[in-house]
Amino acid sequence: MDLNTITAVAHPQTRAQLPVWTPGDAWLAGGTWLFSEPQIHLTRLVDLTDLKWPALTITESHLTIAATCTIAQLDALACPTDWLAAPLINQCCRAFLASFKIWKTATVGGNLCMSLPAGPMISLTAALDGVCTVWKSAGGEERISVADFVTGNQCNRLAPGDLLRQIDIPMAALKRRSAFRQISLAPVGRSAALLIGSLDADGALALTITASTVRPMRLVFGTPPDASTLRDTIAQLITDDLYHTDIHGKPFWRRQMTLRLAEEIRGELLDTAPP
């Protein structure tokens, strides 16, 4: 869609060249949402392409995903064999249910910044203990866990002019055993519940609940919980007002699916038969 209120497009090549943020500005990365509907309040786009951030960087301690990394680039990552959680990357990329055109354009950072409950990059990076680096509009930077970055349906910790630079995934998270569950009302539909569990070498179990809730919910058990403990903990942590509601699923159904998928994940990671 043409954005006919735009009068200027900035092309910074370094952070120092980022323009002073003013009302009517918008960051442009993939632009798949930005160009999908009228944006009559915008007058200038700040194109991040020329910053040329490396899409993916692997070090001894972590995987860095640039905010401008596309879904296609992330999905194509050749993961080391000891990354037991590597299947989550492809599973979450495919949770988009998007065309190849969107895959090649939409960005990981854009998915986080949209902060939709069903954002699968939120699910992936929150489950893998991801930490966002945010360039503050007033200078400096802030590091925020993905689980805390998203605060509600289309709400997050970004202030006007703040820029999400990257998400760092610790190597330890990538080497944990994991389990993935996702459900939608329709065979090809938006996620109504997307849960990811992981189990570390010490037996601690972590469960990340997304899509069914308005923001990511993290549960960590120091010792493996039984079915009753898991169910009770979810019920205590996630109150009725935290379950999302829209045409893709009502809160009561999302709650039931969350409990069901959580128990499936517990059973898979702990190798227990369903009751």
Rank of each mutant, 00 (worst) to 15 (best):
D2H: 12
L3Q: 04
N4M: 04
T7W: 01
A8V: 10
A10H: 09
H11S: 08
P12Q: 08
T14I: 08
Q17D: 15
L18Q: 07
V20M: 11
W21K: 12
P23Y: 13
D25P: 05
A29R: 14
T32N: 06
L34C: 13
T43D: 13
R44T: 09
R44W: 05
R44F: 03
L45W: 07
L45F: 11
L48N: 08
T49K: 12
T49Q: 12
D50T: 06
D50M: 04
P54H: 08
L56D: 05
T64S: 15
A67H: 08
T70C: 05
A76P: 08
L77N: 12
L77G: 11
A78R: 08
C79Q: 14
P80D: 14
T81E: 11
T81V: 09
D82W: 06
P87T: 11
N90M: 02
Q91H: 10
F96H: 06
A98N: 07
F100V: 10
W103Q: 08
G109F: 04
N111W: 06
C113K: 02
C113P: 02
A118Q: 03
P120I: 02
L124R: 06
T125W: 02
G130T: 10
C132F: 00
T133E: 08
G139V: 09
E142I: 00
R143P: 02
R143G: 01
D148M: 01
V150C: 07
T151K: 03
G152T: 03
N153K: 02
C155D: 11
A159P: 01
A159Q: 15
D162K: 10
R165N: 13
Q166N: 13
I167W: 00
I167F: 01
M171E: 14
A172H: 05
K175S: 13
S178Q: 03
A179M: 04
F180D: 14
Q182M: 10
L185Q: 12
A186F: 01
V188F: 06
G189C: 10
S191Q: 07
S191Y: 05
A192V: 02
L195E: 10
L195G: 13
G197F: 03
A201S: 13
D202T: 09
G203L: 05
G203K: 04
L205S: 09
L205F: 13
A206L: 06
A211S: 14
S212H: 08
V214T: 13
R215I: 00
M217N: 10
M217E: 15
S228R: 11
T229A: 08
L230M: 13
D240N: 03
D241K: 07
Y243H: 02
Y243T: 02
H244W: 05
T245P: 01
D246R: 04
I247P: 11
G249D: 11
K250R: 12
F252N: 15
T258D: 00
E263M: 11
P275V: 01
